[in-house]
């Protein structure tokens, strides 16, 4: 504050001195020699350049008036999930694990309500990945289902290895529990039994 008033005082004195010289008074130490005027000009130029360059970091400002003519916007259920998927790019750890828990619970509840599983059996299905035909969805909810390198590579190439894409596939798998006419887990179990029988059959000489 003190330096500012000091600089302002010097400035006012310089302006008054200049005006006095203009009016014909003799001001000590001030003579309009070429060198002096040039130095003053250069100082003014540098200062001017500083001001002009300061403009680069400045944006126009105006009052934000909002949109009173539109209706009050209410959210759609699920907007929070979309925001999280888009905003964090799917990489923030805590958000991702919360979402995973939420989808896991929805999957278990869907199996209980629509597939006539007991809660324990539903949890086992999710744990083992036998609740869906989609290995990506099964793996997303924590099951240790094998996924071949070729499939993984093709997922990466097609850009479907990101968290949002995996979440989307998992949600689609949960929707399939609701939409399917027959039980998903039963069907898979039967198929598993058949394929096991086939393997045994092939293994015989």
């Amino acid at each position: 504050m003190r330096t500012r008033s000091l600089v302002a005082g010097v400035g006012v004195a310089a302006v008054l001195g200049g005006l006095a010289a203009l009016a014909g008074f003799v001001v000590p130490g001030l003579s309009a020699t070429f060198v002096f005027v040039t130095i003053v000009g250069i100082v003014a130029g540098v200062q001017g350049l500083r001001y002009a360059l300061g403009r680069r970091n400045v944006d126009y400002r105006s009052t934000d008036t909002g949109d009173p003519e539109l209706r009050y916007r209410v959210p759609t259920p699920g907007d929070d999930v979309d925001r999280r998927l888009v905003g964090a790019g799917g990489w923030r750890r805590t958000g991702a694990s919360n979402l995973r828990t939420r989808i896991r619970e929805v999957a278990i509840e869907s199996l209980v309500l629509h597939d006539n599983c007991s809660p324990e059996a539903a949890e086992e299905h999710v744990e083992a990945g036998t609740w869906t035909d989609d290995p990506v969805a099964a793996r997303y909810l924590g099951a240790d289902v094998p996924l071949s390198w070729v499939t993984r590579l093709s997922l990466v190439v097609r850009g479907e290895s990101s968290t949002p894409a995996r979440v989307s596939r998992t949600v689609a798998a949960v929707e399939a529990i609701h939409d399917g006419d027959d039980s998903v887990t039963e069907r898979r179990r039967e198929r598993g039994r058949d394929s096991a029988a086939d393997t045994v059959g092939e293994g015989r000489p």
Binding site: T76, P77, G78, D79, D80, V81, D82, R83, R84, L85, R102, I103, V106, E109, S110, L113, P164, V167, S168, V171, A172, V174, E175, H178
Partner: peptide, 19 residues
Amino acid sequence: DPTTGDTTGHRLARVERRN
């Protein structure tokens, strides 16, 4: 029913509501 099926989040919310 306020749910839609256009995005992943909306679809998840729809499944939750059905449950």
